[in-house]
Every structure is written in C-alpha cells, then in structure tokens.
Design a protein around this nucleic acid. Sequence first.
DNA 1: CCGATGTCGGATAACGTTCTCTCAGGTATC
DNA 2: GATACCTGAGAGAACGTTATCCGACATCGG
Lengths: 350, 350
Amino acid sequence: MTDTDGGRPARTKRATIVDVARHAGVSTASASKVLRNAYGVSDAMKERVQASMEALEYRPHRPARGMRGRTYTVGMMVSDIDNPYFSLIADGLASVLRPSDYELLVSPGGYDAASQNQAIEALIDHQMDGLILVAPLVSPADLERVSGEIPVVVVGSHTASPSVDSVSGDDQLGSRLVVDHLVALGHRRIGFVANHQVAAESHRPESVRLAGFLEAMAQHDLSDEAVVIDTQWSLEGGRDAVRLIDALDNPPSAVFAGADITALGMMSELWEGSRSAPDAYSLAGYDNSRIASIGPIGLTTVDQSGHEVGASAGRLLLERIGGRGEASHLLLRPELVVRTTTAPPTPRAL
Amino acid sequence: MTDTDGGRPARTKRATIVDVARHAGVSTASASKVLRNAYGVSDAMKERVQASMEALEYRPHRPARGMRGRTYTVGMMVSDIDNPYFSLIADGLASVLRPSDYELLVSPGGYDAASQNQAIEALIDHQMDGLILVAPLVSPADLERVSGEIPVVVVGSHTASPSVDSVSGDDQLGSRLVVDHLVALGHRRIGFVANHQVAAESHRPESVRLAGFLEAMAQHDLSDEAVVIDTQWSLEGGRDAVRLIDALDNPPSAVFAGADITALGMMSELWEGSRSAPDAYSLAGYDNSRIASIGPIGLTTVDQSGHEVGASAGRLLLERIGGRGEASHLLLRPELVVRTTTAPPTPRAL
DNA sequence: CCGATGTCGGATAACGTTCTCTCAGGTATC
DNA sequence: GATACCTGAGAGAACGTTATCCGACATCGG
C-alpha cells in the first residue's frame, strides 16, 4: 500500500547519493565530495564514483541540496512570459548559465506589485540561489528587503541601490537617438507617448525615456515643440494616443511612442482610419520586438540587445552568488533601427 | 565568521515551523497539522497556530517539503517563453492554480529534444508535483518514462497514451474551417505550407493540420488542387514558402500557412516584393496570435483559445495529482477568425 | 627514530518538513 | 464502575544532501 511496491506502474526508485556510494564502495561523504569536486579525494576514487553515478543515472535531488544551502538554480521573475524582449533576456541568461552548474526557472509575476511580490517570495521559498527581476514593479523598500535575503539583479529598471545589481539599457540615450533621427529628417514638433501609470517612479524606464526625450528636445532648442501625450503603454493605450493626437490643435508631425507595443496600437488605429505611418505622421517605437521587423509593420525603433542584457545579468548574478560584495550597475548602449515608419514631414504638416 | 552574525546586512533568520510551534506553545507536529489542515486539531489550537504564523511571517520552506514528498509546485516546460500562445496557456493555467495551494514555475526547454529532456529532468529533480509539457519534442518513449515518475499533462500534441493526459485543439477541425472558408470564397487551388522537420510524427499538430487540410480538400472533391509546400514553420520558412510558390507552374490562389508565424514571414516577403495578401493570393494562419489582429497585418487565422487550453490542462493535472488513475484526453474546439488577408480569388487567378 | 605536517577517507550531525504511531484523557456503553 | 472507543496532542524517525570534524596513514625534516 505504501510506495515499496504498489504504484500502478513499476515505479523505479530514484538513485540517491547513498546508492552511489554503496555502488562505488565508498562513504557517502566521499561521494558527496566528488559530486561537488571538493578538496580531499584521490583521482582513483573520483573516477570510481563518477563511474557509479553514470551507471546508476544519478542526479542530485535538488530539494535535499536546498536544505543544506545551494539549489544550483536561479529564478527569473517576469511580468508575463509573453514578451519578446523578455525572451531575448532569457536566452542571454541561459547562454551564460549553460556552462555553469546553474539552471534557470521562470516565474510569471503578473502586472501588479502585490502579485509580483508573491512570485518573488515563492522563488525565495524555493531556496533559489539568486534572482533576476525583469522590470519589477515592486517598491524600492521591498527590493531592499529581498536583496537582504538573496542575491538580486534587476533588469530594466534603473536602480542605484548599493545592495542590488542592475543591468539596463541606456534609455536616456535611446530617446536621444530617436529625437536626433526625427530632427534630422526635418521634424520640429514631436510627440511622446507617456505611460502615466508609472511615470512618477523615476527609476523606471518609462520615466527615463520621457526625461531623455525632453532633454534631447531641449538640446535641439525645441522644448516648445515637445508634446507629451499621456496614456498607457499597451495596444489599447496606443489607440487612445491616436485619438488624443487627433484632438490636438497643433499636432506633431512625428511621434515617439515610447514602446513598440504602443506604436503597434497606434498603427492599428491609424489603419482603421485608412491612414498610416509615416503618411499621417512619422512613428517610432522602442524595444525592437520581433514583430517590428515584419514587412507590413516596418517600425522604426530602438534596439536594446536583450540578449546582451540577459547575459550581463547572468554574469553579474553568478559573481554575486560567488561572493562579490558591492553592487554593480551596468548601462548598455542601445541602437537605433530605422525602418519605414519614419520619413521627412509631409508638405501639409509643414 | 559564519552566518550567526557576520553577513554584511543584519540578515534576519527565516522563521521555521519549529519557531511557529514554540511561539504558539504547541508541538511542531501540531503546527504542521495546522499548516496542512490535517485531521486532529481543535479549533482553538488551529487559531492560535495560525496567529503565530501570521506574527512570524512564516512561509513553509519548499525544499524541506520536497524532501517529504510534495512541493506544491507544478512545472511547465515550453520551448521558448516568447510565444504568445504559450503565454495564454500559462494564463489559463495560473487561473486554476491560484485558488489552489499550487504554484507555477516555467522552464524554457529550447527547440530540440535533448535540451527539452534536460529541462524536464531538471523539473523532476526539483520534485515538482506535476508537469505541463507544451508541444514537447520528446519521443513517446521518453514521455512514457517521465510519466512513470510524475503526473504529466501534454498540451498541444495529440497523444493517446494511457498514462499521459493531454489537452489540445482539434487541429483537424481547424484545418477544415480554413479550407471551407477558402472554398466558400471561390478558391479551388489551395496551398498548404507544411513543417517538414516534424511532419513525420503523426501526433504532432503539424501533421494533424496537414492531414486535416488534405481530408477537407478531398471532401470538396479538390484533392487534385491541393498543393503542399514543404518548408519550415518560422519567419524564414514563410519567406521560403513565398519563393517556392512563385516557382510553381500552377500556383494556388489561396494559401493556408499552417501557423501564424509562417504566415507573417510570407507577408513580410510579399511586402518586400511590393505585393500583399489577399492581392497576390489569400493567406490564412493558425493560432490567432496577438499580432495577427494588428490592423496592418489583419491575418485570417484559427483561434485555439489558449486560455481554455491552459485552464483545462491545470484542472487535469490537479486531478491527476489528486490520484485519478486513467488518462484523460481533451480536444478543444477551434474557431475561425476572418480578417483581411482572405478574399475571393482575383480575376487573373481564375 | 621521533614529532610535525600533510593528505585522503569516513562518521555524523544538521537542514525543515511530514506522518505514523503512541499516549492521555474524556465520553459513551453496558 | 469497568471497558471500549473516540479525539486531540506530541514524540520521533525519516527524506537526501552537505560540511565539519576526526582519525589513519604517509612523508619529511632534524
């Protein structure tokens, strides 16, 4: 009735380190040493134990390791697994984790601080060795608390915390690249679609991009021509943006949507009104999501090299797990990708 | 020098069930009973213990639970976290897991059988209570082996295994919906873009969709007009498909791309040749990914209701963990979503 | 030839839970 | 008022691993 015999299929017992030790004729302590390649084992013994592990198809039981400290697993918290950018980050991360002993597990945290906090706690409860938080919505205080328990690397949010590592794109520069491009095309009156929900928190990309936009406009002496449209970064928010712009007395001839998803919403809304970019106005996004490159879309955008961001985050985390004390903050250089949604202003807009 | 004192931040020790028990003045055994709301605790004690848990911010240590069996966590293996359809599945899954005690962790398994196997093993090593495998590339034999160790629900692959549960869309029906639609529009010669890499394995959606296409064409007495284009389901594969179709003597007036991603690649390639759907030929995809609905894309496609698929998979898995013996196989009804890439054949194509 | 030093291997006590089993006390039954 | 039964509470042994300590032996310098 217990598991000694009865499971429907002849459930084969998993080999433990004790089995390995017995099979190799050594103590479990020694087998463990081989497993961790710790100090104090002869080559002969090492070989014998490894052969036994092979023979028994031994794989360490992670919870058991977790009870003694390390699980050799790092957790990644993302708002939603459906984000092309997050996927690039995961890829980069995986590429640095693969050669190490570490493994990656992802937790979908949702779109509000409370559920993200819960997801993070669950990751901690699993005794992960380190955490990668992608564009987290949690408060700085919570972040600080978490980083006291476990090494943390924040990706995408500009934090300057002394206890949390961070990797992000230089969104200030990214905004400048877009503005420079639009101005070079001859635009003067330029709009920016802001994400009002979170713009107040200065460390978030949303507000850094806005600040970068305003600063770049000022550098071109175009502060008076900067038009901020307040809505939300989502497909629906993009649609709203189009309507808001239509209602303007003096509409811009080019719009920087702040994020690809918003630009896509705008394109969709324009399309439904039989208009398009750049005919109605030039349009630029941010993120270089895969969809932006599809022919009929052809969105001008900013590439953040998610792969590189992920790889850097992985390296930082591994270093931190390895014992580095002080936090490190990386700022990666974005690049402008010009496609077909930006062009010189149309005559009627001059 | 050890952790009794020295960590840089005043690292607060995590409360264990022993602490809770002491705080409440009961035995750890009783505290554990309250935690699992097991039989044999008075209401008074239950209340006291729960108050202590609250006070100490107690959260069970999952690895420790794992050592005794359950971890209250289910694992989901996906090829890549960047897939809009997977995200819908995860959403549906989360919605049934939330009210339960279970939590979800996702492992990105990659695009080949070997690395997916590795990801699955890692999930097992973590002592997950159950596994959701999304469109796995692993062999039926491996699947059988895994399902002997842990409850498994396969999503997206049509399996009839007696030991593995499955949930998938009725791809055969989906193909028929597309063909019926195209024929109703007046098309007779219709192409299907096949995914040659995996088409041989009859349980995979790729081959079921192909079979469904051929059967539907036969039902319309159009077997002679069915054109199968052999390439790959990816953006690049879609581009190839366009070139292959161009090389045909007697090209179809409508093409069923088999998957949205392929259709998008085709649209991109057509666009670069200053052509488009449905002018060049009608085009339909499969999956109803979010991007398909964007105005300038407007792809006619088949909706599989990923949310419902995920929710069903979650329910099945929970039942299975709960002890259901025999496997269950669900087939969900897909729906056609008509947008702008399909239209009656253009005169010259008649 | 003796003590000091170094190397390799093993015994063993945790780690935080679960769960079976035992026990104490109360209540019902005759 | 003795016996059987129930109920609530606790003791304690796992689970699979790690890491500290300890001992045995070999080597080396004087």
